[in-house]
């Protein structure tokens, strides 16, 4: 069985984003970029399934700028077998990404498609579910545990009230939550090996997918900033303030 893992290049999670003064977006010039943390978890999960002998091959795909090759190389260094970049400098919405992934799946024929539950730049949390809808496949979102059982997969999901377990027939779509695993590092030897793994580059036109955006961003602004308040000297003063607020 093959696994397809889409990965996105996003602002590094340690970087505090800055909104551009003209309100056109977030300033990404000279900002450290990395693989979306949830996608790293997705790659790790696929690699673990492969190490357990349950998956034969891992294909990673990114839809994005030429620089996303670095992200793909990082995924190859973690243990993916081959990579595909669908290169475009345009910002692409989840719906168009899902359509492109559907086309890629038609070629790769994966038994599992593992995605991050959201990208930490636009925080949409849509692509996996959309892809499942477009392909009419079952979905196990926000996964904290994935167990392959023959032609089914059992997925434990993080839901508002706790945990929920569902059983899906394969091919299936999984989106990862933070506690699914702890991604490994791309080790120096594996970075060297990754250099020799295949990385193919295509364009959206190769898949005939319409990537015209449906949403227009009119403005991007800073959220209202909270001002730091006061520091109290001790617990007594804290209690006095709580009382004044009517809390205690």
């Amino acid at each position: 069985m093959k696994a397809l893992v889409p990965v996105k290049r996003v602002i590094d999670y340690n970087v505090k984003p800055r909104v551009k003064a003209d309100g056109s977006g977030v300033d990404l010039a000279n900002v450290k970029m990395s693989m979306n943390p949830f996608d790293e978890i997705a790659v790790e999960e696929a690699v673990r399934l492969k190490e357990a002998g349950q998956i034969d091959e891992i294909v990673v795909v990114s839809i994005g700028p030429a620089k996303a090759q670095e992200t793909l190389r990082a995924a190859l260094a973690m243990g993916a077998d081959s990579a595909l970049l669908i290169e475009t400098e345009e910002a692409i919405e989840p719906l168009a990404v899902a359509k492109m992934l559907k086309a890629v799946s038609g070629e790769v024929e994966p038994g599992l498609i593992i995605l991050g539950k959201q990208a930490i730049d636009d925080d949409s949390n849509q692509t996996g579910q959309m892809l499942a809808g477009l392909m009419n496949l079952p979905q196990g979102t926000f996964a904290s545990k994935v167990e392959l059982e023959g032609d089914h997969v059992r997925v434990t999901r993080e839901v508002d009230g706790g945990l929920e377990t569902v059983r899906l027939s394969t091919p299936a779509i999984i989106t990862t939550d933070l506690r699914l695993n702890e991604p490994r590092y791309a080790s120096l030897p594996n970075i060297m090996k990754a250099k020799k793994k295949p990385l193919e580059i295509k364009t959206p036109a190769d898949y005939g997918v319409d990537i015209a955006p449906r949403l227009k961003t009119l403005n991007v602004s800073e959220p209202p900033v909270r001002q730091a308040g006061v520091k109290v000297a001790d617990v007594d003063e804290l209690i006095a303030r709580l009382k004044a607020m009517g809390v205690a």
Binding site: E93, A98, S124, N125, Q126, M130, G133, D160
Partner: peptide, 20 residues
């Protein structure tokens, strides 16, 4: 989590870009 799970699947069936 239930809303976030279902909504994008609906959007895909309608060929619509969801607003999250």
């Amino acid at each position: 989590t239930t809303g976030k799970n279902i909504a994008p699947r609906v959007a895909a069936l309608l060929d619509v870009m969801q607003i999250s």
